[in-house]
């Protein structure tokens, strides 16, 4: 059976601590934009924690919402790419082929979640910071679009491990960096094709919603709403 990777985000557990943000950056070799470029909107965050204030003092509330690539089944980013750099894999992931990307940035515009980021220049790491780069993840050069991959390198490693040990993958065995780090276990990752998996169970929750569901993008990330 092929896998269909998905994620569930329990907004009742999420505290906006941003452990996932740094986990993702260090796992996926996301560049440091620096202050000047950050001011010009070039900072990259494959996962971000959106914060929305509601109400005014003293009756204030805040919503946190981690947003990463929703790995849509009907992804608006895919058909618009003229070079197939953005395409759908057999396991339902929206893959971004950096080599194939010529930087039209059309996919980034078409993505309603704004989870696609563009490399405005070549990345620079002040030596010897580059020693901490993850050798399993390619560094993106100038002019290409990048985005969350659900840590495809971890997915592949997990599958290879299971294959080497001649067994089926266990639910929860593969964890993208954000899921691994999340202190409150607000993020859950797994195979949506396995109805018994934790992520399938949570995706069926009555609290479950999809982000911008009415756009018809069929996201594979389910948000479990806060209960207060």
């Amino acid at each position: 059976m092929t896998h269909r990777w998905g994620m569930a985000v329990d907004l009742d557990r999420c505290t906006g601590c941003e452990a996932c943000v740094t986990a993702c950056r260090t796992e996926n070799n996301i560049r440091i934009a620096g202050p000047e470029q950050s001011a010009r909107g070039r900072a990259i965050a494959w996962i971000r924690v959106e914060r929305y204030y509601e109400g005014d003092f003293p009756d204030v509330r805040v919503k946190f919402r981690p947003v990463m690539c929703q790995q849509c089944d009907a992804a608006p980013c895919e058909p618009v790419c003229p070079t197939y750099a953005s395409h759908h894999t057999d396991e339902g992931l929206n893959a971004q082929v950096y080599n194939r990307c010529i930087g039209t940035r059309y996919c980034a515009n078409a993505c309603p979640y704004n989870v696609r980021f563009f490399n405005f220049g070549n990345p620079v790491w002040d030596r010897p910071l580059e020693l901490s780069l993850n050798p399993d993840v390619s560094v993106r050069e100038v002019g290409v679009v990048e985005k969350c991959t659900f840590c495809v390198q971890r997915i592949n490693a997990g599958k290879e491990q299971a294959k080497a040990e001649n067994r089926e993958l266990k639910d929860g065995e593969i964890k993208p960096a954000c899921v691994q780090s999340c202190p409150t276990s607000a993020l859950v990752f797994g195979d949506l094709n396995d109805p018994e998996s934790e992520v399938s169970r949570l995706s069926r929750s009555s609290r479950g919603t999809k982000l911008l569901e009415d756009l018809g993008t069929l996201p594979k990330v389910t948000y479990l709403q806060r209960q207060s």
């Binding site: 618009v80 003229p82 070079t83 194939r100 100038v142």
Partner: peptide
């Protein structure tokens, strides 16, 4: 373009990779 030197990938030409432009793309 982010990588203008590769603009010709927008042109349908028989490449050694056998990849054509994505005809679904308005571009």
């Amino acid at each position: 373009l982010g990588r203008p030197w590769l603009f010709f990938w927008l042109i349908p030409y028989p490449s050694e990779r056998q990849i054509w432009p994505n005809m679904r793309s308005p571009l």
